[in-house]
Simulated scan of single mutants.
Amino acid sequence: MKKRSKWTAVGFALMVSVVGGAVHAQQLKNENLLVGMPQGFKLGFKDSKNGMNMQEFIPAGETVQNWTEMVTVQVFLSRKDLQPAPFLGAMQQQWAGACRGSTATPVATGKVNGYDAASVMLRCPLLASTGKPETTMLTAIKGNDSFYVVQRAVRSVPTPEQFQTMKKYLESVSVCDSRLPSRPCPTVK
Protein backbone atom coordinates (compact mmCIF):
# COMPACT_ATOMS: atom_id res chain seq x y z
CA MET A 1 0.00 0.00 0.00
CA LYS A 2 1.45 3.32 -0.92
CA LYS A 3 1.41 6.43 1.19
CA ARG A 4 -1.08 9.00 -0.09
CA SER A 5 -0.73 12.73 0.30
CA LYS A 6 -3.83 13.93 -1.59
CA TRP A 7 -7.45 13.49 -0.67
CA THR A 8 -9.75 12.97 -3.61
CA ALA A 9 -12.82 11.86 -1.70
CA VAL A 10 -15.53 13.51 0.35
CA GLY A 11 -15.88 13.30 4.14
CA PHE A 12 -17.92 10.32 5.34
CA ALA A 13 -20.06 12.25 7.81
CA LEU A 14 -19.69 15.44 5.86
CA MET A 15 -21.99 18.32 6.60
CA VAL A 16 -22.42 20.93 3.91
CA SER A 17 -24.76 23.79 4.59
CA VAL A 18 -26.90 25.03 1.76
CA VAL A 19 -28.39 28.45 2.35
CA GLY A 20 -30.36 30.23 -0.35
CA GLY A 21 -29.02 27.86 -2.99
CA ALA A 22 -25.37 28.65 -2.21
CA VAL A 23 -23.01 26.03 -0.85
CA HIS A 24 -20.62 27.33 1.83
CA ALA A 25 -17.20 25.82 2.44
CA GLN A 26 -16.82 24.18 5.83
CA GLN A 27 -13.88 22.78 7.69
CA LEU A 28 -14.16 19.22 8.94
CA LYS A 29 -13.72 18.89 12.70
CA ASN A 30 -11.81 16.24 14.65
CA GLU A 31 -11.08 12.86 13.04
CA ASN A 32 -12.86 12.06 9.77
CA LEU A 33 -12.96 9.20 7.31
CA LEU A 34 -12.63 10.64 3.81
CA VAL A 35 -14.57 8.47 1.38
CA GLY A 36 -16.79 9.43 -1.53
CA MET A 37 -19.97 7.89 -2.86
CA PRO A 38 -19.24 6.61 -6.39
CA GLN A 39 -20.98 8.46 -9.21
CA GLY A 40 -24.32 6.86 -10.05
CA PHE A 41 -24.62 5.20 -6.63
CA LYS A 42 -27.19 5.76 -3.89
CA LEU A 43 -27.41 4.97 -0.18
CA GLY A 44 -29.01 1.54 0.05
CA PHE A 45 -28.65 0.76 3.74
CA LYS A 46 -27.63 2.56 6.91
CA ASP A 47 -27.41 1.25 10.46
CA SER A 48 -25.80 2.14 13.74
CA LYS A 49 -25.55 -0.27 16.65
CA ASN A 50 -23.10 -1.64 19.17
CA GLY A 51 -20.64 1.17 18.48
CA MET A 52 -20.47 0.53 14.73
CA ASN A 53 -21.89 2.79 12.03
CA MET A 54 -22.39 1.20 8.62
CA GLN A 55 -23.51 2.46 5.24
CA GLU A 56 -23.92 0.51 2.00
CA PHE A 57 -23.95 2.26 -1.36
CA ILE A 58 -25.26 0.57 -4.51
CA PRO A 59 -25.89 1.65 -8.09
CA ALA A 60 -29.13 3.60 -8.57
CA GLY A 61 -31.88 1.18 -9.57
CA GLU A 62 -30.45 -1.72 -7.56
CA THR A 63 -31.20 -3.00 -4.06
CA VAL A 64 -29.02 -4.25 -1.23
CA GLN A 65 -30.53 -7.68 -1.85
CA ASN A 66 -29.79 -7.68 -5.59
CA TRP A 67 -26.74 -5.62 -6.55
CA THR A 68 -23.93 -5.76 -9.08
CA GLU A 69 -21.57 -3.42 -7.18
CA MET A 70 -21.50 -2.29 -3.57
CA VAL A 71 -19.45 0.00 -1.37
CA THR A 72 -19.64 -0.72 2.36
CA VAL A 73 -18.31 1.79 4.89
CA GLN A 74 -17.93 0.79 8.54
CA VAL A 75 -16.82 3.01 11.39
CA PHE A 76 -16.05 1.19 14.64
CA LEU A 77 -16.33 4.01 17.17
CA SER A 78 -13.66 4.25 19.88
CA ARG A 79 -12.16 0.85 18.91
CA LYS A 80 -8.52 1.56 19.63
CA ASP A 81 -7.93 -2.17 20.14
CA LEU A 82 -8.45 -3.12 16.48
CA GLN A 83 -5.44 -3.43 14.16
CA PRO A 84 -5.75 -3.34 10.34
CA ALA A 85 -3.74 -6.43 9.33
CA PRO A 86 -5.18 -8.85 11.93
CA PHE A 87 -8.70 -7.53 11.24
CA LEU A 88 -8.38 -8.20 7.51
CA GLY A 89 -6.69 -11.55 8.23
CA ALA A 90 -9.76 -12.59 10.21
CA MET A 91 -11.97 -11.46 7.33
CA GLN A 92 -9.89 -13.62 4.96
CA GLN A 93 -10.57 -16.64 7.17
CA GLN A 94 -14.31 -15.91 7.31
CA TRP A 95 -14.40 -15.45 3.53
CA ALA A 96 -12.58 -18.77 2.98
CA GLY A 97 -15.09 -20.50 5.25
CA ALA A 98 -18.05 -18.99 3.40
CA CYS A 99 -16.79 -19.65 -0.14
CA ARG A 100 -15.32 -22.88 -1.38
CA GLY A 101 -12.36 -22.30 -3.68
CA SER A 102 -11.91 -18.68 -2.63
CA THR A 103 -8.61 -16.90 -3.04
CA ALA A 104 -7.08 -13.89 -1.35
CA THR A 105 -4.11 -11.64 -1.91
CA PRO A 106 -1.71 -11.35 1.01
CA VAL A 107 -2.69 -8.55 3.38
CA ALA A 108 -0.65 -5.49 2.40
CA THR A 109 0.25 -3.04 5.16
CA GLY A 110 1.30 0.57 5.03
CA LYS A 111 0.29 4.08 6.02
CA VAL A 112 -2.57 6.29 4.88
CA ASN A 113 -1.95 9.93 5.83
CA GLY A 114 0.24 8.68 8.69
CA TYR A 115 -2.29 6.14 10.01
CA ASP A 116 -1.64 2.38 10.07
CA ALA A 117 -3.59 0.71 7.28
CA ALA A 118 -3.96 -2.59 5.45
CA SER A 119 -5.67 -3.82 2.32
CA VAL A 120 -6.66 -7.12 0.79
CA MET A 121 -8.56 -8.52 -2.19
CA LEU A 122 -10.85 -11.53 -1.80
CA ARG A 123 -12.32 -13.58 -4.66
CA CYS A 124 -15.06 -16.17 -4.57
CA PRO A 125 -15.67 -18.21 -7.74
CA LEU A 126 -19.27 -18.99 -6.76
CA LEU A 127 -20.93 -17.63 -3.63
CA ALA A 128 -23.46 -20.22 -2.45
CA SER A 129 -25.95 -17.62 -1.18
CA THR A 130 -26.19 -15.85 -4.57
CA GLY A 131 -25.00 -18.38 -7.13
CA LYS A 132 -22.67 -15.68 -8.50
CA PRO A 133 -18.95 -14.97 -8.30
CA GLU A 134 -17.92 -12.11 -6.04
CA THR A 135 -14.75 -10.09 -5.73
CA THR A 136 -14.11 -7.53 -3.02
CA MET A 137 -11.29 -5.19 -2.06
CA LEU A 138 -11.02 -3.86 1.48
CA THR A 139 -9.00 -1.19 3.21
CA ALA A 140 -8.83 -0.90 7.00
CA ILE A 141 -7.41 2.18 8.73
CA LYS A 142 -6.66 2.57 12.43
CA GLY A 143 -7.45 6.13 13.44
CA ASN A 144 -6.72 7.67 16.81
CA ASP A 145 -10.43 7.86 17.67
CA SER A 146 -12.01 5.03 15.66
CA PHE A 147 -11.31 2.13 13.29
CA TYR A 148 -12.43 2.37 9.66
CA VAL A 149 -13.14 -0.27 7.01
CA VAL A 150 -14.11 0.50 3.42
CA GLN A 151 -15.01 -2.28 1.01
CA ARG A 152 -15.80 -2.18 -2.72
CA ALA A 153 -17.27 -5.34 -4.19
CA VAL A 154 -18.59 -6.63 -7.50
CA ARG A 155 -20.80 -9.67 -7.99
CA SER A 156 -18.83 -10.91 -10.97
CA VAL A 157 -15.33 -11.63 -12.08
CA PRO A 158 -14.17 -8.02 -12.49
CA THR A 159 -13.10 -6.78 -15.88
CA PRO A 160 -9.72 -5.02 -15.97
CA GLU A 161 -11.62 -1.70 -15.98
CA GLN A 162 -13.70 -2.70 -12.93
CA PHE A 163 -10.56 -3.88 -11.16
CA GLN A 164 -8.86 -0.51 -11.78
CA THR A 165 -11.99 1.37 -10.62
CA MET A 166 -12.09 -0.66 -7.40
CA LYS A 167 -8.37 -0.15 -6.79
CA LYS A 168 -8.44 3.62 -7.46
CA TYR A 169 -11.51 4.03 -5.27
CA LEU A 170 -9.85 2.40 -2.27
CA GLU A 171 -6.63 4.33 -2.90
CA SER A 172 -8.67 7.53 -2.51
CA VAL A 173 -9.85 6.59 1.00
CA SER A 174 -8.11 8.45 3.81
CA VAL A 175 -8.48 9.69 7.37
CA CYS A 176 -7.72 13.22 8.56
CA ASP A 177 -7.80 15.01 11.89
CA SER A 178 -8.33 18.75 12.27
CA ARG A 179 -6.58 18.60 15.65
CA LEU A 180 -3.31 17.32 14.17
CA PRO A 181 -1.31 19.66 11.93
CA SER A 182 0.44 16.63 10.38
CA ARG A 183 -2.92 15.15 9.29
CA PRO A 184 -5.00 18.17 8.26
CA CYS A 185 -8.50 17.92 6.87
CA PRO A 186 -9.38 19.50 3.54
CA THR A 187 -11.80 22.40 3.35
CA VAL A 188 -15.01 21.07 1.86
CA LYS A 189 -16.87 23.18 -0.65
Rank of each mutant, 00 (worst) to 15 (best):
residue 48 S to F: 10
residue 36 G to N: 12
residue 91 M to D: 09
residue 138 L to W: 03
residue 164 Q to H: 09
residue 109 T to W: 03
residue 1 M to R: 06
residue 6 K to Y: 11
residue 169 Y to F: 15
residue 158 P to Y: 08
residue 62 E to C: 02
residue 179 R to K: 11
residue 188 V to N: 12
residue 115 Y to C: 04
residue 97 G to W: 10
residue 27 Q to K: 14
residue 182 S to G: 00
residue 74 Q to D: 01
residue 101 G to A: 09
residue 5 S to R: 13
residue 179 R to N: 12
residue 143 G to M: 09
residue 35 V to N: 02
residue 49 K to H: 13
residue 82 L to K: 14
residue 40 G to V: 05
residue 103 T to Q: 12
residue 155 R to K: 14
residue 98 A to K: 15
residue 66 N to D: 15
residue 188 V to D: 12
residue 178 S to N: 10
residue 80 K to N: 12
residue 4 R to A: 12
residue 50 N to R: 15
residue 60 A to M: 11
residue 77 L to I: 10
residue 82 L to R: 12
residue 135 T to M: 02
residue 48 S to V: 10
residue 167 K to F: 07
residue 28 L to F: 07
residue 124 C to V: 06
residue 157 V to R: 12
residue 9 A to W: 05
residue 59 P to M: 11
residue 56 E to Y: 02
residue 160 P to G: 10
residue 56 E to V: 08
residue 108 A to T: 13
residue 102 S to W: 05
residue 123 R to A: 09
residue 38 P to C: 14
residue 153 A to K: 01
residue 186 P to V: 15
residue 156 S to V: 03
residue 9 A to V: 04
residue 107 V to W: 04
residue 126 L to E: 09
residue 111 K to A: 08
residue 179 R to V: 01
residue 24 H to E: 06
residue 116 D to N: 15
residue 123 R to C: 00
residue 158 P to L: 11
residue 38 P to W: 13
residue 57 F to E: 01
residue 28 L to I: 14
residue 7 W to Q: 12
residue 178 S to W: 05
residue 137 M to Y: 03
residue 20 G to S: 06
residue 54 M to S: 07
residue 132 K to A: 06
residue 12 F to V: 03
residue 72 T to F: 02
residue 53 N to L: 07
residue 47 D to L: 07
residue 149 V to R: 07
residue 81 D to E: 15
residue 93 Q to E: 15
residue 58 I to F: 04
residue 65 Q to N: 11
residue 80 K to C: 00
residue 162 Q to R: 09
residue 27 Q to N: 13
residue 32 N to H: 14
residue 113 N to K: 13
residue 1 M to A: 10
residue 37 M to N: 07
residue 37 M to D: 04
residue 97 G to Y: 08
residue 144 N to K: 15
residue 147 F to Q: 05
residue 109 T to L: 01
residue 106 P to F: 14
residue 88 L to W: 03
residue 135 T to W: 02
residue 56 E to G: 01
residue 46 K to C: 00
residue 37 M to T: 14
residue 71 V to D: 02
residue 119 S to T: 12
residue 136 T to V: 12
residue 60 A to T: 11
residue 152 R to C: 00
residue 82 L to G: 03
residue 181 P to W: 04
residue 78 S to H: 15
residue 123 R to I: 01
residue 75 V to E: 06
residue 26 Q to F: 13
residue 16 V to N: 07
residue 5 S to H: 14
residue 91 M to E: 15
residue 56 E to H: 03
residue 71 V to P: 02
residue 86 P to D: 14
residue 96 A to L: 09
residue 124 C to Y: 06
residue 41 F to K: 05
residue 34 L to E: 04
residue 35 V to E: 01
residue 166 M to H: 03
residue 115 Y to P: 03
residue 90 A to I: 05
residue 140 A to N: 05
residue 66 N to F: 09
residue 12 F to W: 13
residue 172 S to P: 02
residue 69 E to S: 09
residue 155 R to N: 05
residue 120 V to R: 05
residue 28 L to N: 07
residue 41 F to N: 07
residue 181 P to E: 10
residue 22 A to I: 07
residue 70 M to P: 00
residue 77 L to A: 10
residue 169 Y to M: 07
residue 85 A to F: 02
residue 155 R to G: 00
residue 14 L to C: 15
residue 95 W to R: 04
residue 149 V to H: 02
residue 67 W to Q: 03
residue 171 E to S: 11
